[in-house]
Design a protein around this nucleic acid. Sequence first.
DNA 1: CGGAATCTAATTGTCTGACATTAAAACTGC
DNA 2: GCAGTTTTAATGTCAGACAATTAGATTCCG
Lengths: 243, 243
Amino acid sequence: MKIDHDSPADLSAQIAAAIRDSIVEGRLIVDERLPSEAELAEHFNVSRPTVREALKRLAAQSLIRTQRGATGGAFVNRISFEAAQVQQITTSILLLSMNAVSFETACEARFSLERACAPLSAKRRTADHLAAMRAEIHRQGQPGLTDEAFCASDVTFHRALVDGAGNPVLSYQLAGAVEAMQPLMNMITFTARDRAQIIALHERIADALEDGDGDATSEGLSALERETQTLARDVFAARAAKG
Amino acid sequence: MKIDHDSPADLSAQIAAAIRDSIVEGRLIVDERLPSEAELAEHFNVSRPTVREALKRLAAQSLIRTQRGATGGAFVNRISFEAAQVQQITTSILLLSMNAVSFETACEARFSLERACAPLSAKRRTADHLAAMRAEIHRQGQPGLTDEAFCASDVTFHRALVDGAGNPVLSYQLAGAVEAMQPLMNMITFTARDRAQIIALHERIADALEDGDGDATSEGLSALERETQTLARDVFAARAAKG
DNA sequence: CGGAATCTAATTGTCTGACATTAAAACTGC
DNA sequence: GCAGTTTTAATGTCAGACAATTAGATTCCG
């Protein structure tokens, strides 16, 4: 746990990296208390504000939490799947929008990954997962639903499918891909006919999952991918012709 | 862009969230310069150190970069796939180790996701990807290779496969799953016979990719998954019997 | 003796003001 | 007109202080 004091700047980044390494490599374990800010400042031979900046960096990554009071301090956090997902979703959304990732590329990735869950979900989905999907399908058919609400329901439907695989690692990895598509989907205007087709495919997928048929689920997802890609292509082509 | 001044603490977290929202929702665009720390401090009615802590939080997530000098300041960062991957890998590794995810669960997730890449990679892999995979296979056969180096080579092999799909979104999502397995794999001792079997399967996968046969690639991955799971089960069982 | 109220100490959260460092822009002298 | 110097605006760092919070120790009274 050493830092380079001659390097010009960014002492707080160096300190953050040193502590992060200690956590990743197991020298600091979950719920262990770090030295107080004053002690860290002395140890690294920097001022307290500099130490604080380093700790805030770690807090931003959910690596530590802080607590005030006599027995307070900074503690190594047990990263939860939930907290990690929130961060991953934010990062994924920004990645796609900032790097001008095409709808096609994002869509391909999302459906490829979802197909990876299909066989597992067909085997393991519970009645709850299925009920959640049916509920979303029902909502999607309601008249007067905004495009945005339709997309949000679509995301919920697909996340239920993914969660049905019963593998938290898969759910975590998929969350980014599924959620990051939403801003892109929101750019599309869905006609009543479009929605009907999507809903029909959702039903096909739900039926396949109910039957425990992984292959049929995958095929349903592939059909939905083709439908989505075609839809997007038409919308963007029409928009390009107009503008 | 408002913060709650009556809430007891964590002003820097509130400020960071406010700025983050501005970026996510597009009010601040890539390469745009944020107000100076002094201006932000005045705007939010807090001191400069508090603003700085907020900015460090954002810097930890690669949302901004800072530059010193007369025309310096904090600028909205274009998040690169590379930077996002680094963070995702760290998070994934910690997620698995801190939440005691079983080898079985992680392995299942990894191979499921990789199979999702197989058809695309079979279609699109370049000669470079194939050459990289062959090179790693060759390295894996070298005598005197440590277990750790063997695992690292395995990761490189699989990442080449994933990158062969030519979809940066897929590569990004998969990086976490593939790399996070490495610490788990490092817990295993590979006999010469184990290695030979893994190498044979790697060759089978590379051959299938060379032929552009997505199904055969998937089957090769499935065989490798079964082999890996069996191997791990045996190792852990033996260790449990001993200890 | 027990319990409730109070005090104490440790720690994080925030503020003020200062100086160091950096890098671009403005200026100056030739 | 150009090279070198100065200015300036910004971040990076430091020191010291006070506020807020919380757990534990202490005290006091029934």
